[in-house]
């Protein structure tokens, strides 16, 4: 666990600095109430009513997030393989080619179905 002590130290310094900034910022500034100022910013027009919880957003973003997970897991498999590559030899290379090809099939399917198209 000793390895992580320096990270913890840096984290404490950073956290202290960030919390101090946020708190001091709310104390030092002026406070002049104005209803329009506290409205959502929409270039001066009446703001669009927002449902509690942020409302809805395009399903495209969920799709991107899911595709990201697929490829991120591929990367998670690739890293240990890359580190141990010299020891694995031809066997490791062949296995990884098979794995990557399998993922590429899924990738081609997503591409073909328009999952990577933005409008």
């Amino acid at each position: 666990m000793d390895t992580y002590v320096p990270i913890l130290a840096l984290g404490l310094i950073a956290a202290a600095f960030a919390i101090f900034s946020v708190v001091i910022g709310s104390l030092t500034g002026p406070k002049r109430y104005n209803r329009a100022k506290l409205d959502s910013y929409e270039c001066g027009i009446e703001p669009t009513p927002q449902p509690v919880g942020g409302g809805r957003f395009p399903v495209k973003y969920y799709l991107t997030a899911m595709l990201f997970i697929v490829f991120d897991i591929e990367i998670v498999f690739l890293y240990p393989w890359a580190v141990a590559f010299d020891a694995l030899g031809w066997f490791g290379l062949a296995e990884m080619v098979l794995f990557v090809l399998t993922v590429l099939v899924a990738y081609a399917y997503v591409w073909r179905r328009g999952g990577l198209d933005w409008d």
């Binding site: 500034g29 506290l38 703001p47 927002q50």
Partner: peptide
Amino acid sequence: KLALKEDIVPTN
């Protein structure tokens, strides 16, 4: 300058 500006938290 930023530290001396009003810290706005919108109503929403």
